[in-house]
Amino acid sequence: MPTPNPDALHFLQTRRSRPAKTLTTPVPDRDTLLPLLTAAARTPDHGKLEPWRFIVIDKPAMGRLADIAETRGAALGLDAEQIQKGRGQFDQGHLAVVVVEVQKPSPKIPPLEQTYSAGAVCLALLNAALAAGWGANWLSGWPSHDRGFMTEGFGLADNERIAGIIHIGTETAAPPERPRPDIAALTTWL
Rank of each mutant, 00 (worst) to 15 (best):
V97M: 06
L12H: 10
R87Y: 05
V27A: 00
A157P: 11
P110Q: 09
P51D: 07
A174N: 03
P176K: 13
L95Y: 03
T115F: 13
D79K: 04
Q92E: 08
R42I: 03
F90N: 00
R72C: 13
R64A: 13
P2Y: 05
T3S: 14
G77R: 07
I83F: 05
T187M: 14
T151M: 15
D91P: 05
H167G: 00
D31T: 14
A75S: 10
P181I: 07
S144W: 09
T14E: 11
P51A: 07
L190C: 10
G141M: 07
N159H: 15
V121A: 01
D146R: 00
M62K: 02
V27S: 00
K59A: 12
M1S: 15
L36T: 04
V100W: 10
A173L: 15
R16A: 09
F154W: 11
E50N: 07
L190W: 14
G133D: 07
Q89C: 13
E50Q: 14
L186C: 14
A136L: 09
I109H: 00
R53G: 09
Q84S: 15
H145M: 09
H10K: 14
G119R: 03
D91M: 11
R30L: 14
L130P: 13
R30Q: 14
D29N: 15
A174I: 01
P105T: 08
G73S: 01
T3L: 12
K108L: 13
L34K: 12
I165H: 02
A173N: 08
T43C: 12
I57C: 01
P181E: 05
E101V: 03
W189R: 15
V100D: 02
G155V: 08
T115G: 07
G164V: 04
V97S: 00
G93F: 01
D79V: 05
A118W: 08
L156P: 08
A66L: 09
M62D: 02
G63I: 04
R18E: 06
A163D: 08
Q103V: 11
N159P: 15
A66G: 02
T188Q: 12
R15W: 11
G169H: 02
E70Y: 07
I83Y: 03
G135T: 00
K85T: 05
D67L: 10
E177C: 06
W52A: 01
G86C: 06
G133I: 06
H167L: 05
A61L: 12
I165Y: 06
I168H: 00
A74C: 05
R161G: 06
F90L: 05
E113L: 14
L126R: 01
I109W: 04
T71L: 12
P26H: 03
F11C: 11
E171Y: 00
I109E: 00
M1N: 11
L139K: 06
L95R: 02
A131V: 09
L126H: 08
D182T: 07
L190H: 14
L9N: 06
I165R: 00
T187F: 15
